[in-house]
Amino acid sequence: MGKERHAARIKRNAFAWMLLFPSLVFLGLFTYYPIAKTVKLSFYQADLSIRKPLYIGLDNYKTMLHDAVFHKVFLNNLWFAAGTIPISLALALAMAVFANRALKTKGLVRTAFFYPTVIPMIAIANIWLFIYTPQYGLLDRLARVIGSGETNWLGTPHTVMWAMIAMIIWKEAGYFMVFYLAGMQNISKELYEAADADGVGGWKVFRKITFPLLLPTTLL
C-alpha cells in the first residue's frame, strides 16, 4: 500500500509539473533570463564605441548613485508605489467582496471589474489621454461645469504623478481582485453562518473573519 501511494503521488506530481512546464519556460525566458542578463551587463561598459563589452566592476553603480536624475527617478518610483499598491489592494478587496455576493449578475460584475486588466496598455493610454487632455478632456469639461479653470494634468509636476497613479489603479485593481476572490473561496462558510446566527453585523464580520483570513492573499 505504501509503495502504491508513493507511486500515485509521484505520478500526480509529475502531471502537475507537466502542466506547469510551458508557463515556467515562458517565465524563465521572458522574466528571469532578462533579469539575470541585465544584472550581468551592469558590470560591463557596453556602447557603440566598444566592439566588445568591457568589464568595469561597480563603476556603473557608482555613477548611478551620484546621478541626480537617478535620485529623482528613484524617489518618483517610491511615491508611485506608495500611491498605487495600498489603494489598488483596498479597492480590489472591496470589489471582491461585492462581486462575491450571491447576486444574479455576479458573473457580469466580475467581468466588468476585470475587463480593464485585459485591455492593452496602448488603449488604456488613449482612453486616459481623452480624460486628461486640456480643454477637451472629460476632467476639464467637468471642471468647466462647476466653474473651475482648466488643468494640464499630464503637463503639471504637481498633478502628473496623481494622474498616472489613478490610471494604474483603474487598470490593476481588477487583477488583484481575482486573487482575493480565490482566497474567499477557501474561507469556510460555517464561519459566516455562525456569525449570522449570533447576529454579527456585516462590517464586524469583515473585520473579524474576512480580512484576517485574507492576509496571506494580501501578502502574496
Score class of each variant (00 low, 15 high):
residue 218 T to F: 13
residue 84 T to A: 01
residue 188 S to W: 00
residue 10 I to R: 02
residue 166 A to D: 02
residue 72 K to R: 13
residue 155 G to K: 05
residue 149 G to C: 05
residue 58 L to W: 05
residue 151 T to F: 09
residue 183 G to V: 05
residue 45 Q to M: 12
residue 184 M to P: 01
residue 184 M to W: 04
residue 77 N to R: 00
residue 59 D to K: 14
residue 83 G to D: 07
residue 59 D to G: 00
residue 164 M to S: 10
residue 122 I to K: 07
residue 143 A to M: 15
residue 48 L to T: 10
residue 5 R to N: 15
residue 142 L to E: 12
residue 14 A to C: 11
residue 119 I to E: 11
residue 51 R to G: 09
residue 149 G to H: 10
residue 84 T to V: 14
residue 64 M to E: 06
residue 193 E to P: 07
residue 107 G to M: 07
residue 36 A to E: 10
residue 87 I to S: 04
residue 33 Y to W: 15
residue 136 Y to L: 05
residue 93 L to T: 03
residue 146 I to A: 13
residue 78 L to S: 09
residue 89 L to D: 01
residue 216 P to M: 08
residue 165 I to M: 03
residue 137 G to C: 07
residue 121 M to W: 12
residue 112 A to Q: 00
residue 29 L to D: 09
residue 12 R to H: 00
residue 117 T to V: 14
residue 132 Y to I: 02
residue 5 R to C: 09
residue 199 G to V: 12
residue 100 N to D: 13
residue 119 I to K: 08
residue 172 E to R: 01
residue 46 A to D: 15
residue 25 V to R: 08
residue 137 G to T: 06
residue 97 V to F: 09
residue 184 M to R: 01
residue 110 R to N: 04
residue 186 N to F: 11
residue 124 I to L: 09
residue 172 E to I: 09
residue 90 A to N: 03
residue 82 A to D: 06
residue 9 R to T: 02
residue 47 D to P: 05
residue 26 F to Y: 13
residue 65 L to F: 15
residue 63 T to P: 03
residue 43 F to C: 05
residue 204 K to E: 14
residue 92 A to P: 01
residue 217 T to Y: 05
residue 28 G to K: 08
residue 136 Y to D: 00
residue 11 K to E: 10
residue 219 L to G: 02
residue 105 T to Y: 14
residue 3 K to E: 11
residue 120 P to S: 14
residue 47 D to A: 08
residue 58 L to E: 03
residue 18 M to A: 14
residue 63 T to L: 15
residue 48 L to N: 13
residue 82 A to R: 08
residue 80 F to N: 04
residue 85 I to L: 11
residue 81 A to E: 03
residue 39 V to E: 08
residue 185 Q to N: 06
residue 118 V to Q: 04
residue 165 I to D: 01
residue 68 A to K: 04
residue 176 F to I: 03
residue 100 N to M: 06
residue 155 G to C: 05
